[in-house]
């Protein structure tokens, strides 16, 4: 039994096979490049770009939604603040109005009281004056009547004149 394990033919390159191999490979390379690799690589690139575009758009939409949400929240917050401000403003305004009204009322009341006092005083004065005048008139009347009574005779007249004269002389 003989064993031919290593054969020189195994490691001897042959021109024919090299020729056919090179020719076939180059033709296949050319054909595949033209009809397969170029369109496939282009399609893969296009698809990757489309997917990437879609993803980035989705991301953008997400961001926009988040943006809108935060905007809405901001708006809501602002509205709430506005409302609070309006309410507090109204509160202070009402307080102020009440205070002002109270003050005014006080002033008015004081004024009324003062006016009343004044008018009372004036009335009093007027009444007093009138009373005085009346008293004076009455006393004049009375004294006239008394004088008339006393000076109804000549003697008494003379006595009076004499008295006045006497007073004058003294002076």
């Amino acid at each position: 039994m003989k064993f031919t394990i290593l054969d020189v033919a195994l490691v001897t390159p042959e021109i024919g096979l090299i020729f056919w191999m090179t020719l076939t490979f180059l033709i296949v390379l050319f054909l595949l490049k033209k009809f397969a690799w170029t369109p496939i690589m282009q399609a893969l690139k296009d698809r990757e770009e489309t997917i990437e575009g879609a993803l980035s758009q989705a991301q953008k939409a997400k961001e926009e939604i988040a943006n809108l949400k935060s905007q809405n929240e901001q708006l809501l917050k602002e509205a709430r603040m506005e409302r609070d401000k309006i309410i507090s403003d109204a509160n202070t305004a009402s307080k102020q109005i009440i205070e002002k009204a109270q003050e005014e009322a006080k002033v008015q009341a004081n004024k009324i009281v003062k006016d009343a006092k004044n008018s009372i005083e004036a009335e009093k004065k007027a009444a007093l004056t009138e009373v005085k005048n009346l008293v004076a008139e009455l006393s004049i009347d009375i004294s006239e009547k008394i004088l008339r009574e006393k000076l109804s005779d000549d003697k008494s007249q003379e006595a009076l004149v004499g008295k006045y004269l006497k007073d004058l002389n003294v002076n």
Partner: peptide
């Protein structure tokens, strides 16, 4: 050639 040209055509026919 058959394999890859046929799949290249598929890529062309149904892009994306």
């Amino acid at each position: 050639l058959i394999l890859f040209i046929s799949i290249a055509n598929k890529y062309k026919k149904n892009p994306n």
